[in-house]
Design a protein around this nucleic acid. Structure first.
Lengths: 319, 319
DNA sequence: TTGTAAGCGTTATCAG
DNA sequence: CTGATAACGCTTACAA
């Protein structure tokens, strides 16, 4: 492991000159610089970022912390954010849970984009108090250096139900994932709000497990109901897939006997029969926007107003 | 941002004593320690890891570098590896491409698990030369600190074809993803090797794009063939899904008219009709094994022999 | 244009 | 058990 000293010694100059040369400072003699760079290469020298960091107090790393690594769209968020960050020579790091907390508390990242339930508000606030900008997609907390742009999934569902009401649907049901998931709870909240505003007093609530199998099982039991709802919202697409399968096996017609909509706009929505209506969030825009905002704060100390979330309700055959 | 100095001053002790207290060294007086810890908490002091790093030359971070962030199984690898690492207070960082290279070159991680085409052998070797252990799943390079356990997907396919031959299949076709993907090329390599060993001279090769749509399109064109192959291997499940759909629309019977097998053991293999045979890799074991091996090297300077990869060929209705 | 030297926040050696 | 102090590898006034 060669250091700046080794290079300086071999080049017969001082370490500051090496530092200047390595950092492209304008003051250094072209010949000296050339010589230094050559020797650096020869010695396989790369500056120790840690030491550099200790001086400059920045890591050039950005954290993207997301609980659901299985999220099909993870790649979209990350790739679009990376494109923005890497242009300014920032590195992008993904993590979650305990590791993510540590990375923040230890200032291993200069900024963070967050969609991770497991991170506490305290951790986030502490991180922001170091002067590091945070972009929050999963909650709303006040504070300097914190930009909250919560994905208001409840409002999205509310909007969906209203649209379905206008289309003439009158009885509604909600198929939830595991109830202890804050995501599903939030979606249900929006559902209930819409109904209460529409003065619809009753609705069916079913708790599933978020998987295809669980949707299927529930679909098989649906004939136990005395009356089918007009419209069933599934809190994710996977359950909707299983459900549709089961309904078809019972010769129920979708959307005539029962209309269905999922959430996530999964890859297969267009490929199941009938094709599944679903709600999709534009994760590419999401990643890009957060990245640009953060860079604005870091580079130009400028806070932009977060824009509204790009989501689309894809109406297909199922409703 | 309070530092060790602030704590020392307020506690009326020297910085070394604070350091001892913070690091649970056995030499410090319990009362002093208690006092120091209290003050540290009061001042919201967390040790600066960067400074610590500069001394100790370790980061307590482990990198997992994977090109395909969309990989459904990413979560399995990471979660199982995290469980192992976090037990020893290591943090887990995911990244790829340019950022990943930087993280390695700059020694931001103490070790790495790699499945990322975009990382060059040079980068990896350089990283290993710092004394940092590397666990490679996507290639095989020699060197100290490097453990290569390449996923020999060619051998897996070879094995599959042999099994199909024993079952009586005689004419084989290969549906590839984009040809410039090293993964698909490797799978095709194994396919060809098996055929040559079985002395089968001819086979059909089709290049797709790796998507459902591309599989569908190819399925629609398949009637142009004068003769269907007995068995068609699809280099990923997505293409197989599209293909199956198209074949069904032409009233071709699977597996009687043509048998099909995919790769990845995607979530939907069991749910399409006919259910899709596929090859699945046990990513949970993968992550865990790499993690344990790396910890063995870091903590105990002990190199284990990598075990063979856990993969399973799931035979379902499609072949 | 280059060199000297202080300092970033720790850890660790050595002395007390 | 505690305190001074050197050192980790770099950046950056300031001096030359």
């Amino acid at each position: 492991m060669s250091t700046i000293k080794d290079v300086a010694k071999k080049a017969g100059v001082s370490i500051s000159t090496v530092s200047y040369a390595m950092n492209d400072k304008p003051n250094v003699n072209p010949e000296t610089k050339e010589k230094i760079l050559a020797i650096a290469k020869e010695l396989n020298y790369t500056p120790n970022v840690v030491a550099k960091q200790l001086k400059t107090n920045e890591t050039k790393n950005i954290g993207i912390f997301i609980s659901h690594l299985s999220l099909q769209q993870l790649d979209y968020i990350v790739t679009s954010a990376k494109r923005v960050f890497e242009q300014e020579t920032y590195n992008v790091i993904i993590s979650n849970g305990k590791s993510a907390s540590q990375l923040m508390l230890n200032r291993y990242v200069d900024a963070a984009i967050i969609m991770d339930d497991q991170l506490s508000n305290e951790t986030i606030s502490q991180f922001a108090s170091y002067g590091s900008p945070v972009y929050l997609y999963d909650r709303n907390i006040p504070g300097t250096n914190i930009i909250s742009n919560e994905l208001k999934e409840d409002e999205i569902i509310e909007n969906l139900i209203e649209q379905m009401y206008e289309k003439g649907y009158r009885s509604f049901a909600f198929l939830s994932g595991l109830k202890d998931s804050s995501q599903h709870r939030l979606r249900y909240k929006g559902f209930k709000k819409a109904l209460s505003q529409l003065r619809i007093e009753e609705h069916l609530f079913i708790e599933g497990k978020g998987t295809i199998e669980s949707g299927y099982k529930i679909g098989k039991e649906i004939k136990l109901l005395k009356e089918l709802p007009d419209f069933l919202f599934c809190s994710n697409d996977l359950m909707a897939y299983g459900l549709i399968q089961a309904l078809k096996e019972q010769n129920l017609k979708i959307p005539n006997d029962i209309a269905i909509c999922g959430f996530d706009n999964d890859l297969f929505c267009q490929h199941v029969k009938p094709s599944l209506s679903s709600i999709g969030i534009d994760y590419v825009k999401l990643g890009q926007e957060a990245a640009e905002n953060i860079l604005d704060v870091i580079l130009r100390k400028k806070f932009r107003k977060p824009t509204h979330h790009p989501y689309i309700i894809y109406f297909r055959e199922s409703c």
